[in-house]
Amino acid sequence: MEKIISIKDLNYTYPEAKRSAIKNLSLDIYKNEWLSIVGKNGSGKSTLTKLIDGLIEADSGTIEVAGQIINEENIWEARTKIGIIFQNPDHQFVGATVEDDVAFGLENQGMPREEMVKAVDEALILVKMADFKERDPQSLSGGQKQRVAIAGVLATKPQIVIMDESTSMLDPDGRKTVLNLVQQLRSQQDLTIISITHDIEETELSQRIVVLNDGQIVSDGKPEEIYDLGADLQKFGLEEPFTSELVSTLRDTIKLPDGYLNEEELKEQLWKLHSNM
């Protein structure tokens, strides 16, 4: 597997802060991977993404993006490879209309006007916001803002997309649609996805979950490995997946296999028990 981001011994403390936000953190992220980053409020997730995008500078340690260690000179070039959807979409908006806003990133890339108009339309159709083209982004509902912020980043076709809780205000169906869209673009455009989320269901889509706690990585594994952590999940601010919770309420009276079961597996087990009655 080809590394697209390689982080070594990273440290960061905010000016005047008493505690470090990132402590000696090392992490390799592979091309075309979907990586989830989870952890308690204040564990350092957003700080890590700001470091990767060079919005803040590490106190020590290195970050390599697509083979190049980022520094002041090449950060602009590195940034063209990365699209970040920020935790608060209001921080993202620059245009007076939705359309201008999505166009902004493309303009920066020097895309010719005609091509740009088309790309903006396409991106807005993908997130189902084409009808809102002429609206002021500030006047949108919470979920609509998130959709536009997503369109703005996807339109620029970055190699790496960082989503910082960017679907937290979408309704359940809308969230599924957007995540499926991202999944589809990942395979079509060979994207790498880094998704910060508190939604355990969303992490099921990823290949790997990294758990941050107090600025450090405390766990790194496949989703089913992480879901199997049991009581430690709570310690790191996480919730048990739905199926695990259901299985633990059933275990007293019903015989089920050990280990994590996903919904399909649990359904199969229950159906089997039912048909053997």
Partner: peptide, 14 residues
């Protein structure tokens, strides 16, 4: 409370 738990970690949400 307008989506007061968006952005809270699951333990915090509960």
């Amino acid at each position: 409370l307008d989506e007061p738990t968006a952005g809270l970690d699951p333990v915090g949400r509960q």
